[in-house]
């Protein structure tokens, strides 16, 4: 896996938003993904290409449509390599504490 490509792909709020949207509904067309976004179709297509190059997104043809799917592999590898190694249990406890104190899920 090319770590640099994955980190570069993730270092952009629009691309992270696209991943969030695919996480919510997997298998969307470019048109689906453009809906409600303040970006041109070309910009979204470019972001998707970067995500695909980093292997974070995989595309499949279904009839005339090209659908985009999340590929969980690179993020999982980053989690194992860069988070698991650095004491995930403690981070988990802190994150839980923060959520409890702040009373919300996405702190």
């Amino acid at each position: 896996m090319n770590d640099d490509a994955v980190f570069r792909a993730l270092a952009d709020a629009s691309r992270r938003e696209l991943l969030d949207r695919l996480h919510q509904t997997n298998g969307q067309t470019l048109g689906d993904l453009c809906q409600g976004l303040d970006m041109t179709r070309q910009a979204v297509a470019k972001h998707l290409a970067i995500l695909e190059d980093a292997n974070l997104v995989s595309t499949r043809r279904q009839g005339r449509e090209k659908l985009h799917f999340i590929n969980p592999v690179p993020i999982n590898q980053i989690a194992e390599r860069w988070i698991g190694k650095f004491e995930q249990p403690r981070l988990g406890a802190l994150s839980k504490l923060k959520k409890t104190l702040e009373g919300k899920d996405d702190g």
Binding site: M1, G27, S58, F69, N71, P72, V73
Partner: peptide
């Protein structure tokens, strides 16, 4: 439909 995709090298 529901689909899971996994790509690994």
């Amino acid at each position: 439909s529901s689909t899971f995709v996994y790509v690994t090298y």
